[in-house]
Design a protein around this nucleic acid. Sequence first.
RNA 1: GGGGAAUUAGCUCAGUUGGCUAGAGCGCUUGCAUGGCAUGCAAGAGGUCACCGGUUCGACUCCGGUAUUCUCCA
Length: 871
Amino acid sequence: MTASEIRRQFLEFFKSKGHHVVPSAPIVVKNDPTLLFTNAGMNQFKDYFLGNQTPAWSRVADTQKCLRVSGKHNDLEEVGIDTYHHTMFEMLGNWSFGDYFKEEAIAWSWELLTEVYKLPKDRLYVTVFEGDKKENLEKDQEAYDFWKKHVPEDRILLGNKKDNFWEMGDTGPCGPCSEIHVDCRPDEERKLVEGATLVNKDNPQVIEIWNNVFMQFNRLKDKSLEPLPAKHVDTGMGFERLVRVIQGKFSNYDTDVFSGTIGYIEKLTGAKYEASDSKKDVTFRVLADHIRAICFTIADDQLPSNTGAGYVIRRILRRAVRYYFTYLEYKKPLLHELVPVLAQQFETVFPELQKQVDFVKKVIFEEENNFLRTLDSGIRRIEDIIAANSATKSIDGKTAFELLDTYGFPFDLTNLIATENGFSVDEKGFEAAMKEQKDRSRAATELDMGDWTILEDSGTTFVGYSLDTTQTKVTKYRKIKAKGKEQYQLVLSQTPFYAESGGQVGDTGTLDFEGEKISVTDTKKENDLIVHFTDKLPATINTTVTATINKDKRQQTTLNHSATHLLHAALRQVLGTHVAQKGSLVNPESLRFDFSHFAKVTDEELAQIEDIVNEKIRANIPVVIQELPKEEAMKLGAMALFGEKYGDIVRVVIMDPNYSVEFCGGTHIGSTGELGLFKFLSEGAVAAGVRRIEGVTGAHALAYVNEQLQQLKEVKAALKNPKELVKAVDTLIADKAGLEKQLEVLEQEKIKQLASSLLPKAEKINGINFIGSVVSVNSADALKQLCFQLKTELTDYVFVFAANVGGKANVAVMIADNLVADKGLEAPKIIKEKISGLIKGGGGGQKSFASAGGQETDKLDQVITAVKAIL
RNA sequence: GGGGAAUUAGCUCAGUUGGCUAGAGCGCUUGCAUGGCAUGCAAGAGGUCACCGGUUCGACUCCGGUAUUCUCCA
């Protein structure tokens, strides 16, 4: 059975049991400060379990893209070493939201594994929660009894709280769980050691494949448990592992989930994968694993960057490069070549990759190149370090850390290169420096989040599409403290405040607590909660509140948001439909739009795009907003964003059904004419394959145009209103360059003349050709020029020239090289001993040429005589 | 968000305690050599040393700020 059949069978099986199959949520998480990536199948259903939202279907099944590389589940450095850790993996799951419970979940999981997938029953074991006295929890007898119907009792094992009781967090829904384990050992081994003794014992061949969580309790703040009114089922089965078991492979990497990629790497590099523990084979596994994580996160709109989620992607990518660079001896970009293979493999499951295959490839290629450059310069740097420390034959921890911290050169490579050169590296010192940096960062981002004070247990409704003010109540609030600044977060039962989302900034405004006005500085989303930020709390919070937004600011923002839609459509019309939104910022002043496109947008294209947008504004198209089932919206040709999670009912913003139809939760104007005017401010690149356009609309656009015109007017006036302005400026610039050149020539000429007039004044003193003079020049550099001019004319010379330059004394001294050598004359010495004191200044330079400067301009003659005296 | 670094010719980079007439390689222009090419030889053009301010007699160099980029950590 192929991997895709296994996946299909899972989904079809649960479909036949009345489940609605939903697509995977994006792997990159938005609007949740506690999570960067989806790390479990249940993430997208969290709000259902918490009761913040009601599900549209009570039975759901899916395969979810997950990534575990940060936070609690950090497996990154394990991946590739063994045969079963992954960064990105698929989690198959079936859910019941207050519908079926233990009996069905248990029966179906058994049916699927043994009848559909035909796993031998005598290799399966199940575990059931044994109870916990301290928590006052009973054994999960129900689950035990339901399992008894399918499995002999000696295969039902009891597990402790750690393995068999699942909790979402410190508080919230939780419950016992029941795992299914499979024993993959060969028969001879199974005869020797009973499989039951190896369950949950970290044996790589006796592994858990499916966890069924039965949510039946709610954990309260005081740590006590209360029964949930609606009981849920939450299951998760690691897809890669399941495939391995069904296909009877020794390792996940031997299945057809990975073999395509591995085969292609073999083809590209000429190396062979032999499934061993060698560094080379670890590399194959690292590459096959990491390319999936990299591709799917980029396809879900997360570009590699130096912060947050983007930094995690960058690290995964760099780990992959590090491996092929060192162990496959492959010194050029490799990962990007694998993208099409993967895109094709997942075309029907996760089509977002195939749809953006060129874009993802380009991003990865640039990123690889970048890091290969970093490695290159790091290697040069480490070679210098090795040369400089040949005496001690060691690299200290601080230096190794600096290589990583400042130049991005990985420690393991430093270690490797050092060892190759017979050097040692102070690993302890390195670790210490690393710890110091981590501590510093943690301290700087310390966020003290208080507990919510709950006044009223109700959801929150957004009424801001139609109202700017409303009567409401505070349902909960808390205090947060970041960087020593205290702030409060308030949640209202209904609110006109738009929370930052889809690029549109959050509203500001005021909350009027029966006379006491508190201003709202920002509004943000936390999952589906709308959180209002304030600097203080009212004296009495438990009153009626009049919530009013800053209408003016919202209006300006709304204009820019609608303009963004017009722009997006125009971009696709002019540049092509490969243009996809990669980021958007909409605030009262301007709009910023990032999109995938591979070349600079030319001035002609920009003009064309701007024309289209303005044409649509003048056409005064009415903006139609509809809430529709997602399928219907898709039929209208609505543009959805990659990496955005949509519910079953979506909000669609239409500006002429033939022009712009977009999924959007933002605020919009009534008709496009309200925008008045649209103007570009700038166009540029932000990352590989991503361009950024900034623009203004409405009154801001007009102000911008007026400002430009005003500047133009002033320039014209300054140039005495020429007929052809551009030509006049060009001429002006060319003239200036010519004049500067001429001036330089004249200066040279002047110095030459000065030099030739000074030449006859040369005096012979003790065999030395001495010229000393106070001259009139206008820069210190001219004195220098004078010396260099004269040195070609004489031998055995000593020159001293002094000048008053802008009220300051400047002196230059030049001595022929042979005099320096033979007579021990040194220019800086003369300056320090004879000159700087006189002119109240300092000076220095080379032995044969030095310069000095000082305050005293009327002692210049004395400078000359003083030098002359020592010859 | 916190830390470390970088910014010098079209490109890749040197520039050692403040004073070297700011350099190298590649590229470019011109000339010469070779039957042609690869190439070799010679000459030349090209720099507001990112920007702004400060210290100093004097700043590519030291200090502060801004911008951009790289990099590590969270």
